[in-house]
Computed example of a mutant assay.
Amino acid sequence: MTADPRELLLSRIRDVADYPKPGVVFKDITPLLADPAAFTALTDVLAGFCRAQGATKVVGLEARGFILGAPVAVSAGLGFIPVRKAGKLPGATLSQSYDLEYGSAEIEIHAEDLLPGDRVMVIDDVLATGGTAGAAMELIRRGGAEVAGVAVLMELGFLGGRGRLETVLDGAPLKALLTL
């Protein structure tokens, strides 16, 4: 692994024009996931950030946040908690609604997975408008835990998600390995 894996990571992200609709350029991370060197580099960097922030647990945001968050948690020696779309988790949950560009959505987490004193890192593939990450941070705090930070593979800077998250971050760091 190189000292700065950003070039490797960027080289493994494929642009897909007009997906999922005309005019959108989708950032496909499946080539990165298929490359063990790139996937390991990504996991190592994110796990290091978790350790540096004193995280005790990792939440992964459905669905690609699961793919990244679970190996990061294992690598860092932390527990993993999935944040799911509403209605996907059995048992008692905490739920949080948030606004999308067109409409709204709701996510949930198992209430018992968060404990007072937990420092929880939010992991996802992309920071776009910040709605899902912001809702996840609200769930973490409502569950009695502290947000250790937010870490993403890439930030789509032109969508303004970082600015929208500043008040919700409440001093917690936001790390984007790539800003596009």
Rank of each mutant, 00 (worst) to 15 (best):
L68F: 15
K85D: 00
E166N: 07
A47I: 01
Q53V: 09
A133K: 02
R119C: 11
L178M: 02
P90S: 14
D35P: 04
P31I: 01
V58F: 07
R6W: 05
L139D: 01
D125G: 05
M137Q: 05
L100P: 04
E138W: 05
Y98H: 10
H110T: 02
L174A: 07
D35I: 00
T129G: 12
A37D: 12
L78C: 11
V72S: 06
T179N: 14
A111F: 04
A111D: 13
I81L: 13
L115Y: 07
E106V: 15
G117I: 03
R51A: 15
L68H: 13
G171T: 13
I140H: 10
E155I: 12
A92E: 15
A176L: 13
A135D: 01
R141Y: 12
L100F: 14
R141P: 14
A70G: 10
V120A: 09
K57E: 10
D124C: 11
G149N: 03
P90M: 05
L94M: 11
V168R: 09
V150M: 09
H110S: 12
D28L: 02
L169V: 08
D125E: 14
V45S: 02
A76S: 01
I107R: 00
L115T: 11
R119F: 12
G157W: 07
S104K: 15
V74G: 06
D44E: 15
P22C: 09
V152C: 12
L156K: 12
A148E: 02
F49C: 12
E108M: 01
Y98A: 07
R164E: 07
S75H: 14
L32Y: 03
G117H: 11
D35F: 00
